[in-house]
Amino acid sequence: MQIAYYPGCSLHASSELYDIQCKKVFRQLGIELKEIEDWNCCGATSASKTDDFLSVALPARNLGIADASGLSEMLIPCSSCYNRTLVTQKILYEDPELKNKINIELSKKVEGKIRISSILDILVSKADSGEIAEKLIKKLEGLKPACYYGCLLTRFPGDIKISDNIENPQGMETVCKALGAEPIDWSYKTDCCGASAAVNDTDTSLFLMSKIIKDALEREANCFVTTCPMCQINMDAYQDQVCECYGIQKKLPVFFITELLGIAMGFTPQGMQLDRHFVDSLGLLKELKLI
């Protein structure tokens, strides 16, 4: 089965490992990810904060390209890209005048027919159908992840309905349980890591991350797992600094969900590029005899 795929800027730069992992893991699940041609940046939150027209027009161009691909579904692994694209699709559906205005400028017009899926939409259905269980080489016994959703996977700046619970989502837990891991119950799963504030308002971001890390440690998680490249790089690259500022003694590896799937499916740590983490992730996996 083939589905369209929008990687977004992060997955072609600092989170390239997530791009590689997504393709590998999905192939193993019988899904070929077909990257849409000539995609552009979705504008992320920067467009919304600067120009309302662009915040819709930029994702709209990608939607036009995706509609023209002839495929019926598109995976967007990055939470920010997923959020912006889904919101745009809804705005354009409700505002045909704006849609026409944007379509005039596009070589591939938005039709609004492609279904936008987050990585959890697809993985949860594969967990429920038992297809993930079929592909398992080993169970992730002893792994106690704090499933970290962040903001943009469940909350939208508009009335968008999702299948999971907004305040206490369970999708990532469902997938982790299918892999034999024991996700912990905790209170900060949908709290904000600060996103771009890590760069432009660092103290605020460090404070927000400290609360998330402290709660995960108190609940005895031994790692984080996330689906968002911004959450991953913030919690991973800044964890040293957070721990130093807030006197936190222990560090927790921050896995992409695809890394846990990959390890359970028998991919090597090299194949999953686990050496590209800031907080060591190999030690824990070795200790638990998972690699």
Partner: peptide, 17 residues
């Protein structure tokens, strides 16, 4: 931050970190 982000998007269509 947001100004530069959009300026780069206008130049390249994508953001190069």
């Amino acid at each position: 931050f947001h100004d530069v982000f959009l300026r780069l998007t206008s130049h390249f269509g994508r953001v190069n970190e």
